Simulated assay, not measured.
Amino acid sequence: MEYYGYKDIDLIPELLDWKKLNGDSFSVEEWGDAHLTPELIIGFSHIYFPKFAKFENGVFFANSIPNLKKQRESGEWKNLDTIELQYLFNHQHLLDYFVGMMGESYDKISRKQLECVGKILVDIWGMKLRSDFPDLNLHIELQGLDSEGYLEDIVVVFWAE
């Protein structure tokens, strides 16, 4: 079965064992139902549905606004225009979401998995940004996919013009 253009077992290798037990039609959704807890959904909500806010005619992660104001007031980044500032503050390295795996090895994360996570975030954040700011010309992109072997370079970035 395909999910976001990838084979489901390439994204969730454990799914193969579940399919052996439950039949080949066992889906990503069913696997998710078997693993999700209220705590995980609540914990991940800040990733999938972050709060966004307007600042200087741009859109930013709301939690970055206090630091952004402080940096602007101190004169740091005074030469950056709003689009450059948005790119600086609004690019999210996907590998950073898996910092809890540092005790393990990042090599357990595949390029396909990160690309899929990126595509999901582009879809969800795009819908939320357009809902929150229907009057703005918004852009959201998954970048760094052409970076050979460097998963650290895969980012989702958004900005308003």
Rank of each mutant, 00 (worst) to 15 (best):
L68H: 02
V155P: 00
F26T: 05
F49R: 00
S74W: 06
N22K: 15
G103K: 09
D24V: 14
I47Y: 03
F44H: 15
S64Q: 06
N63T: 03
Y3G: 12
H46P: 07
F89A: 07
M101H: 11
L11V: 03
K7L: 08
Q143P: 06
V99L: 13
M1N: 06
N90T: 08
V28N: 12
L138T: 03
F61A: 03
P66I: 01
H35I: 12
L94D: 02
V157C: 06
I65Y: 01
N79A: 06
W18S: 14
M127Y: 09
L68A: 03
V156K: 00
H35G: 04
I140T: 09
L15A: 07
Q86F: 02
L40G: 09
I140V: 13
H139R: 13
V117N: 04
A160S: 12
W77N: 15
G118H: 00
V156L: 04
A62K: 04
W159L: 02
K112M: 12
M127I: 11
G58E: 00
L142A: 00
E29L: 14
I9S: 08
S64V: 04
I124N: 09
K128Y: 04
F60T: 00
M1P: 07
M102C: 11
A62P: 01
Y3Q: 14
K119T: 04
G58R: 00
E84P: 01
G144N: 04
F26Q: 07
I9W: 10
K108H: 10
Q92W: 13
E152S: 11
L151D: 08
N67G: 14
W159M: 01
K20N: 14
A34W: 05
A160W: 02
F133P: 04
F26G: 06
C116Y: 11
P50W: 04
D33G: 05
F158Y: 03
N90G: 08
D153P: 07
F26C: 10
W77F: 15
Y4C: 07
L138V: 07
I65T: 06
S105M: 11
S131N: 15
L88K: 00
L88A: 08
L151N: 07
L114A: 05
L36F: 10
H93Q: 09
L68Y: 02
N67E: 14
G75A: 01
